[in-house]
C-alpha cells in the first residue's frame, strides 16, 4: 500500500540519471577595455570576437526555448548592462539605427528589419547586443582608458548577480543561472580584490557557477582561478601562451562553455587550473610563508607597511603595536643547577 501514499516523501533518486530540463539564464560579462583588445589585435579582432560571442548567445538560446541571456560590458570607467536594454531604449535605438546606418566601426552591415532569415528570438538579441557593445566601445575615451588601470570586474559581477537575483529568486521562475566572464588580461590591471571576492562568495552561496574565459597574454589572475574553483565553474586560458589560439574562440565557447548547470554534475568539466592556493602578500605580490596579518581585515603582508596603514582596510596601527612586533623573543636566563 505504500505505492499509493500521496504524502510527498522527497526520496532523492540515488542514481539521478534523469536530467531536469530547467531553462537557464546566462550572464555574459564582456571585457570592453579597448587597449587590452588592441594588444591582441593580431590574434583576434574585436569584430571576430563579437561575432563568436553572438553565435554563442544564439547557441545558448537554442538549447531551450525558455533560456534567457543577460549581457554586461565593463571597462575602466565602469560596467553597464547591454542586454536586456531598458524598455524604451530599444525602440529609440532601432529608429536611430535605421536613420544613420553607418554608426558602427569596422564596416559592419547595419542589420535590416526586412531580413527575417534568422529566428526572430536570435535576431532581436543579436541586434541589441551588437549595437550596445559598439556604442560602449566607441564612446570610451581612449586616452583616459590607458591611464586608468582599474577594471570594473567587481561592478560587472555585482550587476550580474543583481540581475540574476531579481529574475530567478524574486520572480520565482524555475531557472538556473550561471555567469561567464570573458576577459582580456591587461598586464597592469588592478582589481579591487575584496569587492570581487565578495561577489564570488555570493555566487557560491547562490550556487551560480562562474566560468572564466581568458583571451589575453597577461599572467593568470589567481583570484579568477580561485573564483572558478570555489563556484565549480570552468576556467580556460585561450592564449598563445598555452599553445591555443583565440581565433578559434567560437569553438572553445561552444564546446567548453556551453554546458548547462543542470548537466554539469554528469560531465567532466574542461577546466584547466592548478589553483595556487598559497597566500600572497598584498604589498609585494610575492608568495609568503610567514608574515604579518592585519587584525581587522585579515590581509597578509610580508613586511610592515611604511605608512603604518593597512593597504586594504586602511586602519592605522599604533606605534606601540608595531614596535612590539620588531622585538626578538626573550631569552630566559637558565638557573645554574648546583650539583650536590
Amino acid at each position: 500500500m505504500n505505492a499509493i501514499d500521496g504524502t510527498s516523501r522527497q526520496l532523492k533518486d540515488t542514481e539521478d540519471q534523469t536530467l531536469d530540463d530547467t531553462p537557464s539564464l546566462l550572464s555574459i560579462i564582456i571585457d570592453a577595455h579597448v587597449p587590452s583588445w588592441e594588444e591582441i589585435k593580431s590574434q583576434i579582432s574585436i569584430s571576430e570576437a563579437v561575432a563568436s560571442i553572438l553565435v554563442f548567445i544564439n547557441a545558448h538560446l537554442a538549447l531551450h526555448n525558455s533560456n534567457s541571456v543577460n549581457v554586461i560590458g565593463y571597462n575602466a570607467s565602469g560596467a553597464r548592462i547591454l542586454y536586456p536594454p531598458k524598455s524604451g531604449v530599444e525602440s529609440t535605438r532601432s529608429k536611430e539605427r535605421e536613420e544613420r546606418s553607418e554608426s558602427v566601426s569596422d564596416g559592419e552591415q547595419a542589420p535590416s528589419k526586412k531580413d527575417h532569415s534568422m529566428y526572430r528570438q536570435f535576431k532581436t538579441v543579436d541586434e541589441v547586443v551588437q549595437t550596445e557593445l559598439w556604442n560602449m566601445l566607441n564612446h570610451t575615451n581612449y586616452v583616459e582608458e590607458e591611464k586608468q588601470h582599474n577594471s570594473a570586474i567587481s561592478g560587472a559581477l555585482s550587476l550580474a548577480l543583481g540581475f540574476i537575483n531579481k529574475h530567478v529568486f524574486v520572480d520565482e521562475s524555475r531557472m538556473r543561472a550561471r555567469i561567464l566572464l570573458l576577459t582580456v588580461g591587461h598586464k597592469n590591471e588592478t582589481i579591487q580584490y575584496i569587492p570581487t571576492m565578495n561577489c564570488i562568495f555570493a555566487a557560491q552561496k547562490l550556487k551560480i557557477p562562474v566560468d572564466v574565459c581568458k583571451l589575453g597574454p597577461g599572467s593568470d589572475q589567481v583570484f579568477l582561478q580561485q573564483a572558478c574553483d570555489s563556484t565549480h565553474g570552468i576556467y580556460m586560458d585561450i592564449s598563445e601562451k598555452n599553445s591555443k589560439t583565440p581565433k578559434g574562440l567560437v569553438q572553445y565557447l561552444l564546446s567548453g562553455f556551453i554546458s548547462d548547470p543542470s548537466l554539469r554534475p554528469h560531465i567532466v568539466l574542461p577546466t584547466q587550473s592548478n589553483v595556487d592556493f598559497r597566500a600572497a602578500c598584498f604589498l609585494t605580490k610575492q608568495v609568503v610563508d610567514i608574515g604579518y596579518v592585519c587584525s581587522v581585515c585579515l590581509c597578509i603582508m610580508s613586511q610592515i607597511p611604511s605608512n603604518r596603514r593597512c593597504p586594504t582596510c586602511d586602519t592605522t596601527y599604533s606605534e606601540k603595536t608595531l614596535a612590539g612586533l620588531g622585538r626578538k623573543p626573550l631569552k630566559k636566563k637558565k638557573k645554574k643547577v648546583v650539583k650536590p
Binding site: 536530467l19 530540463d21 538549447l63 564546446s255 556551453i258 548537466l263 554528469h266 560531465i267
Partner: peptide, 10 residues
C-alpha cells in the same frame, strides 16, 4: 535530451 544538445553544439 540535454546531453545530446551539448554534444551537438560542440
Amino acid at each position: 535530451p540535454a546531453l545530446a544538445r551539448t554534444l551537438i553544439m560542440g
